[in-house]
Amino acid sequence: MYRTLLVDFDGTLTPSLTLWLQAFQYALDKLGRTVPEDTIIKRFYYRPYEETAAEFDLGSGKVFEGHVMDGLTITLAKAELFPGALDMLEAARELRMAVALVTSSPRPQVMSGLRNMGIEDAFDVIVSGDDVRHFKPHPEPVFKALHLLERGPDECLFVGDYTTDVLAGHAAGVHTALHLPAEHEPFYDFEMLRATRPTFTFTHYAELIAFMRRTNMLEPTLIGA
């Protein structure tokens, strides 16, 4: 039985990988540089800004990061929830689960995206990249969320879309659910993601909702009874 639900933001609640791509392109344009889209997908995601700036001769990593954040603020204004994501959050409430958002993205951009999607009040706790010293796959963000919720790891499910989420979950001793929507195929190697051995893998949120209800031994007809 799960009493706690932790949810990643980018690529999990919202199909934002293309929005990050646009933010990287915005930053490159500000720096007067052009990098092929497929190279951005392969070399820009999930890397320290200093490393990316050094590899592509972009100057200061801090300046590059600032441009990316400016671009992300613009692109996240277009963020939308994955179909069924709101139903999943509502199902968690019906199942009396504590709910936290756990993301490595900066808090200002995340909060802007949540407000634009109308779900800024959907979480008991929000742990952003600004709130921890170590990003996922380090377990610190997961442990911090559990600490703030006053919950243990044994009855917790962490939902994410990338290796960093699953590995952070493993390191923290929580169960994991891996989101593999078709929109992510240009960005990720799905076999590599499955190799991280999540507790559950799903394509559509209806599958995750059914898993949560089944695990908590509560039939849909009994919700709210």
Rank of each mutant, 00 (worst) to 15 (best):
1 M>S: 13
2 Y>H: 13
4 T>H: 03
5 L>Q: 07
11 G>H: 02
12 T>M: 03
12 T>G: 07
12 T>A: 09
14 T>Y: 00
17 L>F: 15
17 L>P: 00
23 A>D: 03
23 A>H: 02
23 A>N: 02
23 A>S: 15
24 F>A: 02
25 Q>D: 01
26 Y>R: 02
27 A>Q: 05
27 A>N: 08
28 L>C: 08
28 L>Y: 02
31 L>I: 09
31 L>E: 07
32 G>F: 05
34 T>K: 14
34 T>H: 13
35 V>W: 03
36 P>E: 12
37 E>G: 00
37 E>C: 01
40 I>H: 04
41 I>E: 01
45 Y>G: 01
45 Y>A: 02
48 P>S: 09
52 T>R: 01
54 A>K: 15
56 F>W: 10
57 D>G: 12
58 L>V: 09
58 L>K: 06
59 G>M: 03
61 G>T: 09
62 K>L: 11
63 V>D: 11
63 V>W: 01
64 F>E: 06
64 F>W: 10
64 F>T: 05
66 G>I: 06
68 V>I: 15
69 M>L: 15
69 M>R: 14
73 T>M: 13
79 A>N: 03
79 A>F: 04
81 L>V: 07
81 L>M: 11
82 F>W: 15
84 G>M: 08
85 A>S: 12
85 A>Q: 07
88 M>I: 08
88 M>C: 15
88 M>W: 00
88 M>H: 00
89 L>F: 07
91 A>V: 13
92 A>M: 07
93 R>A: 11
95 L>V: 09
95 L>G: 05
95 L>F: 11
95 L>N: 10
96 R>M: 04
97 M>H: 09
97 M>K: 03
99 V>E: 07
101 L>H: 03
102 V>A: 10
108 P>C: 02
110 V>S: 01
110 V>D: 01
113 G>W: 05
113 G>L: 04
116 N>R: 15
116 N>A: 13
118 G>K: 04
119 I>D: 06
119 I>H: 05
119 I>Y: 04
120 E>G: 00
122 A>W: 04
125 V>F: 05
128 S>P: 10
134 H>Y: 14
137 P>D: 11
137 P>G: 10
137 P>V: 10
140 E>Y: 11
140 E>G: 10
141 P>K: 07
141 P>I: 08
142 V>N: 08
144 K>Q: 13
144 K>D: 11
150 E>Q: 15
150 E>S: 14
151 R>M: 12
151 R>E: 15
152 G>H: 04
154 D>P: 00
154 D>R: 13
157 L>A: 11
157 L>Q: 06
160 G>C: 07
161 D>V: 01
164 T>K: 12
164 T>I: 12
166 V>F: 05
167 L>Y: 05
168 A>C: 10
169 G>H: 09
171 A>W: 08
172 A>E: 11
173 G>F: 03
173 G>V: 06
176 T>I: 10
177 A>E: 07
178 L>D: 02
179 H>A: 13
182 A>Y: 12
186 P>H: 06
191 E>L: 09
192 M>I: 08
192 M>L: 14
198 P>K: 06
198 P>G: 10
200 F>R: 01
201 T>I: 14
202 F>V: 07
205 Y>M: 12
206 A>Q: 13
207 E>R: 04
209 I>L: 10
212 M>C: 12
212 M>H: 04
213 R>F: 06
216 N>E: 10
218 L>R: 14
219 E>I: 01
220 P>H: 12
220 P>I: 11
221 T>D: 13
222 L>G: 00
